[in-house]
């Protein structure tokens, strides 16, 4: 049975009349036209659909829209302040942690959640958090470098030497 839902997304209020069991991912993409949260598996395994709900990284493919009511949702579209990128976005750009880019919004939002805990995380905790996500371009070395960079740690410098 359809019901009206009050959603607070990126600081704006929306009223969406829909089935309460419908995944938040579909509502964001189809009703609110926010396509930065993406489908990768639909079963909570890949993290492509991640947004922040009250600051915590949440997989929207397995979150019914009714669970997200009246809670502050931040999608990738709402992370930058105007033209100024969030430091994690900037770090992904600086470290070129993107190939096709499809998984990247989810990865960034996971890192934002991790780093918001305060205090620099250990490499182990970065790996543990980021291993919730799949990047099929397997861009993991750059992703690790980006998160460490954002955390203010020394980035893992690319171990490459160009020789003639």
């Amino acid at each position: 049975m359809e019901r009206e839902h009050r959603l607070l997304v990126n600081g704006r209020e929306h009223r969406v009349t829909t089935d309460p069991d419908r995944p938040l991912l579909d509502v964001l993409r189809e009703d609110l036209e926010l396509s930065g949260a993406r489908y990768g598996c639909g079963e909570g395994e890949c993290g492509a659909c991640t947004v922040l709900i009250e600051g915590r990284a949440t997989r929207t493919c397995i979150t019914p829209v009714s669970d997200a009511q009246a809670r502050a949702i931040t999608t990738i579209e709402g992370l930058a302040q105007g033209d100024t990128l969030h430091p994690v976005q900037q770090a992904f750009l600086d470290e070129q942690a993107l190939q096709c880019g499809y998984c990247i919004p989810g990865q960034i939002l996971r890192a934002v959640d991790l780093l918001s805990a305060g205090g620099p995380p250990s490499r182990e905790s970065i790996v543990a958090a980021m291993s919730e996500h799949i990047c099929r371009c397997c861009n993991y070395p750059r992703i690790l470098a980006a998160v460490e960079h954002a955390a203010g740690l020394a980035p893992a410098t690319p171990q490459t030497g160009a020789e003639s």
Binding site: L85, G101, P105
Partner: peptide, 20 residues
């Protein structure tokens, strides 16, 4: 650097499944 990098990190990139 990737010429569409900024669109990737802001969610502005439009993939085939994002076309409306």
């Amino acid at each position: 650097p990737n010429v569409k990098g900024r669109d990737s990190v802001t969610g502005a990139a439009t993939f085939p499944s994002d076309v409306r």
